[in-house]
Write a protein that binds this DNA or RNA. Structure first.
Length: 306
DNA sequence: ATAGGTCAAGCGAGG
DNA sequence: CCTCGCTTGACCTAT
């Protein structure tokens, strides 16, 4: 049996509960950004960056080799260039040190930008915003000196269907070519959690076969949008798209089952995960998407003696 | 110090 | 037409 790395996303519950908290989620609402501007954004960004380093160090100490970095490191960064931040020198220096740190300690870090990144959009402005946001993510990895590869992936969903999946997939592939190389070399796509949207098979033929970028297999989403494939065959198809890079898969479970509350949407994530994750013998890196974050991973490992 | 209302962006499902 | 869910609950103001 292969040993798979298991990771968590963005927030460390233990460190976030400490006083003073170690936390990368400092942000602000529009009104505050309008009044306080980039100077305050930079201040929050610097604090977030410092705390990211502490989380990575905690990961090393506790043996976590796989971690998703929050997309909220720099509040409102779509509205300015990172270089414009008053604290840019200190921030870029920290990012560079973190890059060395994860490289030396074999910690895989990834990004998962928000659902507002819609490369399929017919609205030019939406596509522009998407290119900008993805480019900032790539810029952060560049500042960490992480070489452009899907090992440090930037993962997104396809976006809208607009009643015509085939033409939407085509637009995705056309707009992909507008992305800078720093993004193209890192971009991956993930299967959706609605039956009308993109299954692994849709991504394989509509994206991978055209522009050759890997597919992140999400177990939970597959349950709502399987495209007629079994879990095993969908996983295998996704794994086959990764080349020499260890594939990433996402795993989560339904909150409504955990809480025994059918008012909660079945797509919503549970605090912890309970079922054994079958990787069908493949060596993959498993990103656990559970609200209890690293605590969910630890509980899972203890249940199955991993 | 805490509670409650509010909060950038896109999309689709469900009430 | 509004709310939820997703990358991720946090921010802000009034009490």
């Amino acid at each position: 049996m292969n040993k798979n790395n298991i990771g968590y996303a963005c927030i460390n519950m233990e460190l976030a509960s400490q006083s003073p908290k170690i936390y990368t989620g400092r942000s602000m609402i529009k009104k505050t950004f309008t009044s306080k501007g980039i100077k305050y954004a930079s201040k929050l960004g610097l604090e977030n960056t410092k705390d990211l380093f502490k989380i990575l160090q905690w990961n090393k100490k506790t043996g976590f080799k796989f971690f998703r970095i929050t997309s909220n490191l720099f509040p409102w960064c779509s509205e300015y260039d990172l270089e414009e931040m008053p604290d840019y020198n200190e921030i870029s220096s920290l990012l560079s040190q973190m890059g060395q740190f994860v490289d030396k300690n074999n910690i895989r870090v990834t990004f998962h930008p928000g659902p507002f990144n819609v490369l399929t959009s017919k609205n030019e402005k939406v596509v522009e915003n998407c290119i900008n946001d993805l480019s900032i993510h790539a810029k952060i990895f560049d500042l960490m000196n992480l070489k452009p590869s899907t090992y440090n992936k930037i993962n997104i969903h396809i976006g809208g269907v607009y009643g015509d999946k085939a033409s939407a997939l085509k637009r995705f592939c056309v707009n992909f070519k507008k992305l800078p190389n720093s993004v193209q070399k890192r971009l991956t796509v993930e299967n959706d959690d609605k039956s009308s949207m993109y299954s692994v098979e849709d991504l394989y033929f509509g994206v991978y076969k055209i522009i050759n970028i890997p597919i992140v297999f999400d177990y939970h989403h597959h349950k709502f949008c399987n495209g007629g494939m079994t879990e095993k065959s969908a996983l295998e198809l996704a794994v086959s798209t990764w080349g020499d890079v260890t594939p990433v898969v996402h795993y989560s479970e339904s909150r409504n089952l955990e809480k025994n509350d059918n008012k909660i949407k079945p797509q919503a994530h549970s605090d912890y995960v309970y079922q054994f994750i079958d990787t069908y013998g493949y060596k993959v890196d498993i990103m656990i998407e559970a609200k209890a974050k690293e605590k969910a991973v630890n509980k899972y490992k203890s249940i199955y003696n991993l």
